[in-house]
Each structure stands twice: as C-alpha cells, then as structure tokens.
Amino acid sequence: MKTSRRSFLISSVGVVSALALSREALAADLPMLPESDPTAQSLGYKADATKVDKAKYPKYAAGEHCATCMLYQGKAGAASGPCGAFPGKQVSAKGWCSAYSKKA
C-alpha cells in the first residue's frame, strides 16, 4: 500500500496528540511525594514552602515555591505536578526543596 506524505503527517498528529493525553493521565496517577521520603528529606522538601526551616536552608527566599521552579512539570494553576528532582512522584505546587531553581 502506498502512503502519501500528507496522510503520514495527518496520522502522526493523531498519535502525538494521544501520547500527550496519556502523559497527562499518567502524571495525574503519580503518588504524592511524602516529606518522609529519603530523597525528599535529603533535599529539605516541604509540601508547604512557608514551613521551610530558614536557618537550615538559608538559600530559601520568601515567595519561592515549586510552581515557580524550572524542575516543576505540573500545569499552571494545578495543585500538584511531577518534578524532575523526584521522578515518579508529584509535589505540591506550594512546596519547596533545596533543588529549587527559578523559572526563566
């Protein structure tokens, strides 16, 4: 069967769209990162950035939170989302850890 470039591109768009939707669905199924997780503890993760121990983490600045970090992969306005620092887990958009790096 001969396939045209046009039909290939049209079917490719459908496949890419389906993959994007399934990625969002998978992200929603990820468990929340508990503060007791060893990696979370090593990076000083707090689900509520206002509870960060400023003496222990002097790098923390008021107003910093996961939703404004370049590692955060959640949608804008979402309560939580995946994070590059914690693969396979979701973090609170209002959280913070020492891997924080402000989005450009």
Rank of each mutant, 00 (worst) to 15 (best):
E24W: 06
L19Y: 01
P31V: 02
C66V: 00
E64W: 09
A55M: 13
R23E: 11
H65N: 10
A62I: 00
H65I: 02
Y60M: 02
V15E: 00
S36Y: 01
E64F: 09
T68D: 14
Y45C: 11
Q41V: 09
Y57N: 09
A67Y: 00
K51E: 12
A25E: 06
K54V: 03
A28M: 13
A27R: 04
L43C: 14
K56M: 11
K56I: 08
L21K: 04
A49C: 09
T39A: 15
A20F: 07
K46S: 12
S42Q: 12
L33T: 02
Y60E: 05
E35F: 04
H65Y: 06
Y57S: 07
K56C: 13
K56G: 08
D37C: 08
A67N: 03
A18Q: 07
V16P: 00
A55L: 15
A67S: 11
S17T: 01
M32S: 15
Y57A: 09
A18T: 08
K56L: 12
D29I: 04
D48T: 09
A20R: 09
A47P: 08
D29Q: 14
P58N: 02
L33V: 06
S17D: 07
K46A: 14
A18K: 00
C66D: 02
A20P: 05
A61M: 15
A28K: 13
G44S: 10
C66I: 01
A47W: 07
L21E: 06
P38L: 03
L30D: 07
K51N: 12
K54A: 12
K56V: 04
T68E: 12
V16Y: 02
P34F: 00
P34E: 11
S22I: 03
A18W: 01
P58I: 00
K56S: 08
A67T: 03
P31F: 02
A47S: 15
S42V: 02
S36A: 14
L19D: 04
A27H: 08
